[in-house]
Design a protein around this nucleic acid. Structure first.
Length: 805
RNA sequence: GCCGAGGUGGCGAAAUGGUAGACGCACUAGCUUUAGGAGCUAGCGGGGCAACCCAUGGAGGUUCAAGUCCUCUCCUCGGCACCA
């Protein structure tokens, strides 16, 4: 018998799969819809990597299974192609990013084709094409019109290496997330999107989703809503530390406001601390007396210092020349400025309660502040503080507003125009580009290099920058900032519903049919930012009435796929030289083997190391599977099929057992156990002495089809099938075969296994007891005691509870 | 510190409260004139000649029956974090 020649078989079928009608999602079809989404890749020059291949294979197996059980499946793919690597490549080579992007997306697409992913390519999208980003820009103009976007001079995280402003989320421990360089603070005018206005709804909305627990937790944790009270402490000057001749910046009515979630510990306040960026510290610094030199030195040093390992470092601080009064007991307490308080949260000032807070205790130690070590919190103070007017309830979020400007070339131009005339006439100087003038097309340029001034290279293109105000028609300037790389991926799943629409972002009826996304598969690294941003944009579009779902949530379910490590157990990286290229593997072993191996490695969400020996095990299995089927086809062509023989029934039992558990497991992404069961079934069938009927072989092939598209198609045709096995229905379970040869019952005495007995599935308790007692071993255990009780679970267990003497 | 997921053979891992270790890798023995990362048969948690006993990080508990449920505890991984 010939063995399976994957090269020949794949070559034969790959083109036929290209235009398979069944892979296409049909708008408004009467079948129930299923929108299966897997994150679209950034097409990097290195091509499709194992991580892509893994997550997409899982999504593909699921999508194929969903089609086979009767759903109208939307399984689209596209390119999230704006980003720094293409721009950096352009800086180096002078080749336009669009040119490299085109080339690389073609490479990716061919690699995906070889992996036999059943994407609906008619709906392909690319975030860098004007017909796509027209709508990314349109969304921005709507944000602006609704007051959710404005430009603001603000200190931002500046990466001196990338020459780019970064969102807080893109700075890790003071380092640029991309290149690792230490970031600086710079004052730059930036577009800011008010995602915080949606903070509560972004938490609330999670109730309407089926996200796995860790994803929900990550979202809530990221937003980090805290209920507390802003308490005002009256400021008094400290007579012992003169403020110098300059008039005191304070008058009698000045207060220092702190945010606390623990007003119940107000009694234990020993000091207050303000952040170095706090107005109070900055104002005091200005008074420039000798005594305050320590303070200004401290603040200046703080500005220079990088933020690295802030949590590791010992706390530092300086005493301020003022005191404040605790409204609860009128005690005067000192005020410090210290680096462990952050300006970004609450009011930038805290109350120091060293007896209950470890950080405050730490600081007290450094500053040699004495305090009572014990304090009994008083919950009544929550009400008292509000009732007596010491403070007011306040909710603070860790979530920051979203800095939306990038000073780069390769991104969507922010579609805004600055009009001096409109500004002078008391109006808004910033004018959004109206829908009919969109898209604002990214012009071709010669120099891609970002500038040190913090402006994008677009600022150098005079005839692009100079434009007319859409409102008054006067001379105006275009915004030269571009959008962050998240912008295009915020709404891409909407575009798949109607990817070619040139009038709208997508037709409402089509979105109504396909939305929400039923299953969204992606990496943990996107569980906070991408997921949060896209949920926010969706909620915003919902408020505009643009998207038609019942509930303002775009994704019904979110699943995390796992991570594949290199054979050495480390993360794959070019520099470590331990990268596994999926293409090299498919060249060597064939697509089906690689797909099946990845799905067999472990649970879909696990972290697993690549192991080529195990892959070979899967290769051997596929070979055995192929032989089993082809040998039986051969036998069936020579001899009459024997129906209803004992062997025939046993074969059907094995296959139906497989159909049952495979169907159940595929539904919940337990691909590894489906493959284990396919192996088990194949082994079982190989041991049968009779032949397996062609009809039964067909069932087997349909079960393996979602995993191994090529082998299954080849065998399907070998069995005389026409068309594609991938358009077939998944086999239905025939229950009558499931227990055709009885069930194995575990026989226990006092809960301990003492033997097994095979009986009819319908057997009664009495029959089971009779059978069990026939066994010598059981009889022996029962002889030296009295049977107190018998537990009988049909098909599972028979347990004698015996009272031993 | 907070949140989440986990701890089961030499390894990757299976087990709606009901035969722990399915399936695969590695390994051992044998078969097959066998050079192909081959195939086939058998074995493969520990102890014991055996009957049996022990075993799912640890300690208790619930139950006829616990890897699975409850309480406490230890450890690992992932995310967030001087968040007030």
């Amino acid at each position: 018998m010939e063995s399976y020649n994957f090269r020949e078989v794949e070559k034969k079928w790959i083109e036929k799969f290209d235009n398979l009608d069944g892979y296409k999602g049909k708008d408004f079809d009467t079948r129930e819809k299923k929108y299966v989404l897997v994150e679209f890749p950034y097409p990097s020059g290195e091509g499709l990597h194992v991580g892509h291949a893994f997550s997409m294979t899982g999504a593909d197996v699921y999508a194929r299974f969903m089609r086979m059980i009767g759903f109208n499946v939307l399984f689209p793919m596209g390119w999230d192609a704006f980003g720094l690597p293409a721009e950096n490549y352009a800086i180096k080579t002078g080749i336009q990013p669009q040119v490299t992007t085109d080339r690389i997306t073609k490479l990716f697409k061919e690699q995906m084709r070889r992996m036999a992913f059943s994407f609906d390519w008619e709906r392909e999208i690319n975030t860098t094409l004007p017909e796509y980003y027209k709508w990314t820009q349109w969304i921005f103009t709507k944000l602006f019109e609704k007051g959710l976007a404005h430009k603001e001079e603000m200190p931002i995280n500046w990466c001196p290496s990338c020459k780019i402003g970064l969102a807080n989320e893109e700075v890790v421990d003071g380092d640029c997330e991309r290149c690792g360089a230490i970031t600086e603070k710079r004052n730059i005018s930036q577009w800011v999107v008010k995602i915080t206005e949606y903070a509560d709804r972004l938490i609330e909305g999670l109730k309407d989703t089926d996200f796995i627990e860790k994803v929900k937790a990550a979202q809530v944790n990221w937003i980090d809503r805290k209920e507390g009270i802003n308490i005002r402490f009256k400021i008094v000057l400290d007579p012992e530390i003169p403020l110098g001749c300059a008039a005191s910046p304070f008058d009698k009515e000045d207060f220092l406001e702190v945010f606390t979630t623990r007003p119940d510990t107000l009694e234990g306040v020993e000091f207050l601390v303000v952040a170095p960026g706090h107005k109070l510290a900055q104002e005091l610094k200005e008074s420039r007396t000798q005594e305050l030199k320590i303070l200004s030195d401290y603040l200046e040093e703080y500005d220079k210092r990088d933020l690295k390992d802030r949590s590791e470092r010992q706390k530092t601080g300086v005493l301020l020349p003022i005191k404040v009064i605790n409204p609860l007991n009128n005690r005067e307490v000192p005020v410090y400025v210290a680096d462990y308080v952050s300006m970004d949260f609450g009011t930038g000032a805290i109350m120091g309660v060293p007896s209950t807070d470890a950080r405050d205790a730490d600081f007290a130690k450094v500053m040699r502040i004495n305090f009572e070590p014990t304090l009994v919190p008083n919950a009544g103070l929550w009400g008292e503080a509000v009732n007596k007017g010491w403070g007011r309830k306040k909710i603070s979020y860790h979530l920051r507003d979203w800095i939306f400007s990038r000073q780069h070339y390769w991104g969507e131009p922010i579609p805004m125009v600055w009009c001096e005339k409109c500004a002078l006439h008391g109006g808004q100087g910033w004018v959004p580009v109206p829908e009919e003038q969109l898209p604002v097309v990214l012009p071709d340029i010669e120099k891609y290099q970002p500038t040190d001034t913090g402006e994008s290279p677009l600022a150098n293109i005079k005839d692009w920058v100079e434009t007319k105000c859409p409102k008054c028609g006067g001379k105006a300037r275009r915004e030269t900032d571009t959008m962050p790389n998240w912008a295009g991926s915020d709404w891409y799943f909407l575009r798949y519903c109607d990817s070619k629409n040139d009038k709208k972002l997508a037709e409402v009826d089509k979105m109504k049919y396909w939305l929400p996304v039923d299953v969204y598969i992606g990496g943990d690294e996107h569980n906070t930012l991408h997921l949060l941003y896209s949920r926010f944009i969706y909620q915003f579009l919902y408020d505009l009435g643009v998207v038609p779902t019942e509930v303002p949530e775009p994704y019904k379910k979110r699943l995390s796929h796992g991570v594949i490590l290199a054979p050495d157990g480390k993360r794959m990286s070019k520099s470590k030289g331990n990268v596994i290229a999926p293409e090299a593997m498919t060249d060597k072993y064939g697509t089906d083997v690689v797909r099946m191996y990845m799905m067999f490695m472990g649970p879909f969400d696990a972290t697993m190391a690549w192991n080529e020996r195990s892959l070979i095990g899967v290769s051997r299995f596929l070979e055995r599977f192929y032989k089993l089927v082809t040998e039986n086809i051969g036998k069936n062509s020579r001899t009459r099929e024997l129906k209803n023989s004992r062997q025939d029934v046993e074969g059907k039992r094995l296959i139906n057992k497989l159909i049952k558990s495979a169907g159940e497991d595929l539904e919940v992404f337990k691909f590894n156990t489906v493959i284990a069961k396919l192996m088990e079934t194949t082994n079982g069938l190989s041991k049968l002495t009779g032949t397996i009927a062609n009809d039964d072989l067909r069932l087997l092939i349909k079960v393996i089809a979602p995993f191994a598209p090529f082998v299954s198609q080849e065998l399907w045709v070998a069995l005389g099938g026409s068309g594609s096995v991938h358009a077939e229905q998944f086999p239905r379970l025939d229950e009558k075969y499931l227990y055709a040869s009885g069930v194995t019952l575990a026989v226990q005495v006092n809960g301990k296994l003492r033997g097994t007995v095979v009986i009819d599935v319908e057997a009664t308790e009495e029959m089971a007891i009779t059978e069990a007692k026939k066994m010598d071993k059981i009889a022996k255990y029962l002889s030296d005691g009295e049977i107190k009780k018998v537990i009988f679970i049909r098909g599972k267990v028979l347990n004698f509870v015996v009272n031993r003497e």
